[in-house]
């Protein structure tokens, strides 16, 4: 009884922090692990990630090669860490460009309405008619294999969801009287969009973006796995998975390491999205 009372009377902000705190601890532990591993690999061992050594291929774990070596004798830990930088970096790049295209287009469509909005909705519907993965595969197939084209393909499939989210927020906000008053006070359309509408979308977009980050990492890895993304000898988790496939029976850990890395990072990205959603108090129904 006593505990129930204390929960009810406790500060709501305190309770809000429980889940994020647990998630933060997990994220910090993971980051510490990656930092330690990076320090060991890049500062102490200093292996060349592309140097092949056929005499030292498929070695087991040792102090020299904590995660062993792959089929070409390259250090797995070094490649795993560099692969993380690649995968995360390209995911963030794709996400950033998608945001840069999606946010302005969404604001303009939602604020201008009329034929601008109708044109936008038609185009967006066209993009949304195809599943993300299929479009990305077809596009990177058409444009040619390579990480640059893969990023382009991801931007092309991803900008629509941001533009649509932003448009729906702007549509409802621009009905409100404070926008009318801003107009009667002589603010230009560009200034209204920047000063009065942009703050409304930041939280929503950040939440969607962090939830999307996991999906984009998966997309890059899976397309690299089938050979449409990063090209050898670039270390990339999906490509590393594919490289290790023939040795699955003798050295399964070669597939487990990059697989586990992908799982961890995607989970962390989703946790980040969850936390941000709680912090910004974004309602789930706004998510497209």
């Amino acid at each position: 009884m006593k505990s129930t009372v204390s929960v009810e009377t406790s500060d709501p902000h305190k309770r809000k922090w429980h889940k994020p705190r647990a998630q933060a601890i997990i994220a910090i532990l993971f980051a510490l692990f990656v930092l330690t591993a990076s320090f060991y690999a890049f500062v102490i061992l200093k292996h060349d990630p592309s140097l092949t050594d056929l005499r030292g291929r498929l070695l087991g774990a040792s102090a020299e090669h904590p995660f062993g070596t792959d089929h070409l004798g390259r250090d797995v830990l070094t490649r795993l860490l560099l692969g993380g930088v690649q995968t995360l970096g390209y995911s963030l790049l794709a996400l950033g460009v998608a945001l840069l295209i999606g946010i302005p287009l969404g604001i303009i469509a939602g604020y201008k309405r009329g034929w601008v909005d109708r044109l936008f909705v038609r185009v967006a519907d066209g993009f949304l008619a195809f599943p993300d993965t299929i479009v990305a595969i077809v596009l990177s197939g058409l444009l040619g294999a390579g990480i640059g084209n893969l990023v382009l393909a991801i931007v092309i499939v991803k900008w629509v969801s941001y533009a649509r989210l932003v448009r729906s927020i702007v549509l409802s906000e621009s009905q409100k009287e404070y926008i009318l008053i801003a107009r009667t006070n002589g603010l230009s359309d560009a200034r209204i969009m920047r000063k009065h509408l942009l703050p409304h979308i930041a939280g929503h977009v950040l939440v969607l973006a962090s939830l999307d980050l996991g999906k984009i990492i998966l997309l890059i890895s899976s397309l690299s796995y089938i050979g449409l993304g990063a090209q050898p000898p670039t270390p990339e988790w999906g490509a590393m998975l594919n490289d290790s496939r023939p040795y699955f029976q003798s050295r399964p850990e070669l597939m487990i390491y990059p697989g586990l890395a992908i799982v961890c990072v995607v989970l962390l990205a989703n946790m980040l999205g969850d936390t941000l959603r709680d912090l910004f108090d974004v309602k789930k129904e706004v998510q497209p």
């Binding site: 009287e177 404070y178 009318l180 801003a182 006070n185 002589g186």
Partner: peptide, 27 residues
């Protein structure tokens, strides 16, 4: 103009100062 609903007339994401200064800055 002053509208009926003050909650809708003020941008919830802006501080009072930022909403108040608009007419002066623009007009």
């Amino acid at each position: 103009i002053v509208f009926q609903n003050p909650s809708a007339s003020l941008n919830p994401k802006l501080k009072i100062a930022d909403s108040l200064i608009d007419p002066y800055e623009q007009l």
